[in-house]
C-alpha cells in the first residue's frame, strides 16, 4: 500500500532545512545582540560602581581610619575598634552590587564567545 507511494513533493528536505536555518540564525542573532548589550551595559556599570565605591570610601572616612595606625603605631592596641570603624564606613552594598555586575559581565562575555564560535551566521 503506502510502501509503493511515490508522489513525494520535491524539495521538502531543503525547504525544512532552509526554514530551520533561518529560525536558528534569527535565534543566534537575537542572542548575540542580547549578550553584547548585557556585556556593554555591565561594563559601564562596573566602571560607574567602582568610581562610586571610591567616592563612598573617601566620603565615609574609611581611608582616614586605615591611615591612622601609620601616624600613631600605639593605636594598634585598639585594633578591634579600628576594624569596626573601617567596617562601618566601608560601602559593602555597593561592593556587592559591583561584584554582581562583574559576574554578569563575565557570564555575558562567555556566552557571547560561545555564540561566536558556533557555526557561521548566514543572514
Amino acid at each position: 500500500m503506502i510502501k509503493d507511494y511515490n508522489q513525494i513533493l520535491p524539495g521538502l528536505e531543503q525547504d525544512i532545512i532552509k526554514k530551520i536555518n533561518k529560525l536558528e540564525n534569527n535565534r543566534l542573532f537575537v542572542k548575540r545582540i542580547t549578550y553584547s548589550s548585557v556585556s556593554l551595559v555591565s561594563l559601564f556599570g562596573i566602571v560607574q560602581y567602582i568610581t562610586y565605591i571610591f567616592k563612598a570610601i573617601s566620603v565615609s572616612g574609611a581611608f582616614e581610619y586605615v591611615s591612622l595606625p601609620f601616624y600613631d603605631i600605639s593605636l594598634i592596641t585598639y585594633w578591634k575598634e579600628l576594624i569596626l570603624s573601617i567596617a562601618e564606613s566601608f560601602p559593602f552594598m555597593e561592593f556587592g552590587i559591583t561584584l554582581f555586575i562583574a559576574g554578569l559581565f563575565i557570564w555575558s562575555i562567555k556566552n557571547l564567545q560561545v555564540n561566536l564560535t558556533m557555526n557561521k551566521l548566514n543572514i
Partner: peptide, 18 residues
C-alpha cells in the same frame, strides 16, 4: 553541530510526508 539536525530531517522527512 548544526548539521546533525539535518541528519534527522533527512531520515524522517519522507516517511512523515507520506
Amino acid at each position: 553541530n548544526r548539521e546533525a539536525f539535518n541528519g534527522l530531517i533527512n531520515r524522517y522527512s519522507q516517511s512523515l510526508y507520506k
